[in-house]
Design a protein around this nucleic acid. Structure first.
Lengths: 255, 255
DNA sequence: ACAAAAGTGTTTTTTATACACCCATGC
DNA sequence: GCATGGGTGTATAAAAAACACTTTTGT
């Protein structure tokens, strides 16, 4: 039964004559979880195969419904914890999709409950993430898909991913989210790979990318060298949060 | 972090292993409605004085609860229609605020209903908007406030405005929303006033602003001159949507 | 005539882009 | 020694910022 509505007085102030029934909602959270496979140089999205109706056996974004006492962000983190275990991640709210009839359950449910989806996007380190995903993934209900090979998904999840991808690209350009997802120390080439996987091949020349970033002064050379196969060993750098502070809130500081 | 939860019999969904009670939501929409008073050169926000508890008599964002069969965007437009009548406006979803206990009604209500607020930001033309707002505004329940003189508001509405302001500034820099809110024809100074009211005094020199915009080629001179007091009469320009088309989706095209 | 607002042009500085070249290592 | 990836520098083009100057109006 629809819960009797104690707050109908809310809209009477400007609409005395027109007393409409408020909608009752269940709120879902769906995560667009991105990762970059630096070996293959690909941007990946984590998908889950649905085990229930509607859209049984279709791939979808990992999601959940919000529980009592749980904030939206809590729910988003819970999804993360259930699918993959990572030490570092970046998480941010994306958009709220909430038209009536976007969820087929609205039709078959008896009480006219609406389903609203608040989407979040996350960026995680691939090396860490993959291991744990594989463990859960024994019957292949969870899997990484390259961004350009996403199949037809349940609900409006293809749209949500497209939207998340654009947001990720923008974020990467003007905030230091890459460093939340790279190891503590990394080579400038690691960083460059990450950027070009997300932004596309032709976003910048490596040497220009290099000098621009170093000139900003918040990457410090640890002096430690690391050799990966042939070629000259690379310096390991680390992100200096203090040196970055002055750039905070200044849009488009780098790249 | 999920709060342990006594009445877990209310469940609807299929959550096989971990049977937690889902939260029931009412969904509100709150609008941050911006306008620019070009005479005074000020950025304004439309506020409403609350006529009911909680926060009786405090100022707040105009908002409403979502009705059955109504999309979030519909609700946002309904708020607009109820408060001010405008011909042109720009409207876009901002952010969804949904922690438990952000709304005091959650504590006093019997059924544990949660309140979630999806905020939208709007930009409207001041000349049109003011007239209609004044009509509704007979007992001053609705009023424009300069962005730097916003009082203490109900709920978390001060935060929402701050967030909306940043978004408006960004939007203005890389998309042509100004033209949705200016008259069909306008002087370059009108445009400049709008930009400097939103972005702050020192965003750009007028003459540089001018040449940058004209060079982009989507503003066409109608040839009509308009004189406003002393000084040389200004040309009326109009926005040429076709000429703008190639810039679509290219981020940060101007300013 | 002169103040006020519109509009043009020029100079300087900064940033982006392209690309040539040297360096240190594995094989 | 030479291929491979790391790292530096330079030359050119483009964009941003500062500001001087001209034009056309009202008073």
């Amino acid at each position: 039964m629809p819960i009797p509505n104690p707050n109908s007085d809310l809209n009477i102030e400007n609409q005395p004559r027109n007393q409409q029934t408020l909608a009752d909602f269940k709120v879902g959270v769906d995560n667009v979880i991105f990762s970059v496979d630096t070996m293959e140089n690909r941007l990946l999205v984590l998908l889950r195969k649905r085990q229930q109706e509607p859209f049984l056996n279709l791939w979808s974004l990992p999601g959940t419904l919000v529980r009592q006492g749980e904030s939206l962000e809590d729910a988003a983190y819970r999804i993360m914890a259930e699918k993959i275990k990572v030490n570092n991640l970046y998480l941010e709210q994306l958009y709220t999709f909430g038209g009536p009839n976007r969820d087929p359950r609205e039709k078959i449910d008896s009480y006219g409950v609406r389903y609203l989806s608040v989407s979040y996007f996350a960026l995680v380190r691939f090396d860490e993430a993959q291991l744990i995903a594989d463990k859960i993934d024994q019957n292949s209900r969870v899997s990484w898909y390259p961004i350009n090979k996403i199949p037809q998904l349940a609900f409006d999840h293809n749209e949500i991913i497209a939207y998340g991808h654009r947001r990720l690209q923008n974020k990467l350009e003007y905030s230091p989210i890459a460093f939340e997802v790279l190891p503590k120390t990394f080579t400038l080439n690691d960083l460059y790979q990450l950027y070009s996987a997300v932004l596309g091949e032709n976003f910048s020349d490596y040497s220009n990318f290099r000098s621009r970033l170093l000139k900003l002064g918040f990457l410090s050379d640890t002096g430690i060298k690391v050799s990966r196969g042939a070629g000259r060993p690379a310096s390991l750098y680390k992100f200096d949060a203090e040196a970055f502070a002055p750039f905070k809130d200044k849009p488009l500081v780098f790249i």
